[in-house]
Design a protein around this nucleic acid. Structure first.
Lengths: 236, 236
DNA sequence: CGGTGTGAAAGTTTTCACAGCG
DNA sequence: CGCTGTGAAAACTTTCACACCG
């Protein structure tokens, strides 16, 4: 056991190498988001049960999740928000900023170019590409749309490691191949297709229609609601 | 026990009441998406292992997932794509179309109004609302932006049951409360905040920056790659 | 006290493996 | 045959409960 509890203000142990469950990492992002809100509201410390309650998780789950990465709390006190935020950012890799390449400057792509939430978490869309000659050359939200031919060169020049795919389904695989060829290490894919990627390229899919489908299912299957538990306020 | 295996061409058993794991439902959407692609490409039948391979799941997982809802396959043959699509839509509730109310007609909201993927899965944004008087009255992608004051009435009139929240974080909870008050049954929330909702209202959150954070983590922690397995066949 | 960190127990999801069927 | 449907086993995740700490 790597046992260490020396100084009170611990930093992130290490990103750790042992496999951390994906679902844990996704909760980490939620913890971070909530912590940022708390700090903005002036809160200094928080306990696992407060944080859990806000997000609908148990206190034990919060502590276990954090436990994957190190020891961040103070018994009897909780966690110092600012310290924990820094630790989470270290873990997630967002203490330094990331340049992102966007492929596809249609409706959705243009909206993403203007989305302020990326910058707040240290992501910057550093370049945008489109196959349509009519779009190339335009400057949208301060980013000039470049032709796809320039992708590899720009990615190299700007040290871009992440890509966002915002093209129609039919062109998604081809565009992904270009990103991979350019040496990109991870892709967020907004096209409603499953990409085939080499195993060293990380992949996160966001399908907007699927999100609605999940709602549709939840609402539809909410027919089985008879003998309820009147007590506890809710939490799936 | 509800045991039934009568006619070959089975339909969806029933949405079922027993709790189906969320993750199963999310895979269902992926199966459906892939099946639609296959049918468009002219394929008639598919086996669990083909479908699984395309999406990165095991054949057993595909069969188990489907098994939650009924029996859809033909031993020795696989699944008939068209039948399975219909069954999945029955389960997910997308064999009938859904009217959706959108709150927030900023950059992202306007892009979503034009997103064709919704219609393809039987969702229609039937009304859009914004607090900004400058936006109200404009027609975007064929949808007129209405003032928030009209929300409840329009929701009732048009039989809208689902909402999409595309407002800044600070206004998200307030807007969600309005949707709830209007009788909406489920919300897709694009604001980077955790909403507090009554338990009978379903909730799906989409945080675009978090998707990038997950990538960032995956790429960052992809440092632990030493003794690799060059070949495919696994032997631990 | 109020709270963390953590083994051990409970619960859930995935994989295995095989009977049965067209 | 080739492939489904499904119990049983394995793997994984969450919850419990408690020692320990400031």
């Amino acid at each position: 056991m790597t046992d260490q509890r020396p100084q009170p203000p611990q930093t992130a142990d290490l990103p750790s190498d042992a496999s951390v469950p994906k679902v844990v990492v996704s909760r980490l992002s939620l913890y971070l988001r909530e912590l940022q809100r708390l700090v903005a509201a002036g809160q200094q410390t928080i306990s696992s049960s407060q944080l859990g309650t806000m997000l609908g998780f148990s206190d034990a789950q919060v502590r276990k999740d954090l436990g994957f990465f190190g020891q961040f709390g103070y018994p009897g006190v909780g966690y110092r928000c600012d310290e924990l935020i820094r630790a989470m950012r270290d873990i997630l890799g967002t203490n330094h900023s990331w340049s992102v390449a966007m492929v596809g400057a249609g409706n959705l792509g243009q909206a993403l170019l203007g989305y302020r939430g990326f910058g707040r978490q240290n992501f910057a869309i550093a370049a945008a590409f489109d196959a349509d000659p009519a779009k190339v050359g335009q400057t949208i939200q301060g980013v000039r749309i470049q032709p796809l031919a320039e992708l590899a060169e720009t990615v190299r020049q700007k040290g871009i490691r992440l890509g966002m795919l915002v093209v129609p389904a039919e062109r998604a695989q081809e565009a992904a191949d270009r990103l991979v060829a350019a040496g990109i290490e991870g892709i967020v894919n907004f096209a409603p297709v499953t990409l085939v990627l080499p195993p060293h390229v990380q992949n996160v899919g966001v399908d907007l229609a699927i999100e609605l489908e999940q709602l549709s299912f939840a609402v539809t299957s909410k027919l089985a609601k008879a003998a309820g538990e009147p007590g506890v306020p809710a939490e799936p």
